[in-house]
Amino acid sequence: MNRGHEYRKERLDRGIKVRSDGLYSLMSWRELSYLTLPRLILICGLLLLPVIVPGMYWQRVISIVCIYALLALSFDFLAYHLGLVCLGGAFFLGTGGYITAVLNATFGLPPVLSIPIAAIAGGLICTLLLLPCIPLRGVYFAIVTLMYPLFFDRLIVALDVLGGTDGIMGIESFPGSQAQYYVPILLVLVCLFGMRRLVNTDMGLMFRAVRDNDQAVRASGININIYKAIGVFIASAMGCLSGACLVHIYMWAGISLLALDFSILPIAATVIGGSGTLVGPVLGCFILVPISELLRAFGTLRIVFYALILVAFIVVRSEGLMVYAQRKYHQFERWVKV
């Protein structure tokens, strides 16, 4: 770095990136693989993980990672594609978890039904409850969403409903261990690529416009609250989906579903993985959650650990790993004389 003032760093797109931009990339294996290899590695890697990792315990950890990855995806989408920073991921997770718990334990619906119903119904309920907050901006929305899970946590304890502090027990697990490992992984893949699709559609364009500049969208005769509500529904449905899966893995639903862990770890994963990239948060979870599992023996030290990592990343490398990796993949850097 210290090469004096007369040098500056120049970044240029790699030739292959430019060549593989259009339809012609289909003509050459090299360019085709440049485009598809990262995606294939991600998909195959995820699908192979349950086979590779040793033992039940780590297979279970992979499922938990996927739960967090869905939450992180929902946070990333809301914060960086819609401009609503939601600090209450636990609220989504808890809503989905409790709904599936009630459906399964009280009404006896099998997981095949209870999980999708919990995702859709939970998404609707979360959206309805957040509807009054949707016009709020920035800090106000962040604070109010941070308070939602805490509020429902205390309310459930105070009213002693939904099992109170004991929670709801006797919930069916996934049918078979293979389903338990692969369902979350497949959900993550579907959601990830679905979201990537979504942000490139006209709807995604509107979301980005709302994030960039809500006033101009209003001045264009568009009701932004509708778009914000749709975005919140998509994100909360994803969060509820993760909660529903988690409940069926744990076979238990309780107020710890609303714990701050579920709000803060996805945020940490997003910051570490690269905010706004959608893939980054998922990878961030694959880094953070296993490490925090390794530290489980040290009790709450793992929270200290990932809180500190979060601070370090915010302060030192706020772009995140994924943005860094993408830049290295697509561009080369060199020092040029000025």
Partner: peptide, 19 residues
């Protein structure tokens, strides 16, 4: 960056308390 401020200070608080 108000939201980053919240996240950062909250993470510090979390680290201290859980520590």
């Amino acid at each position: 960056m108000p939201v980053s401020e919240i996240i950062a200070s909250y993470a510090i608080g979390l680290a201290i308390l859980e520590g």
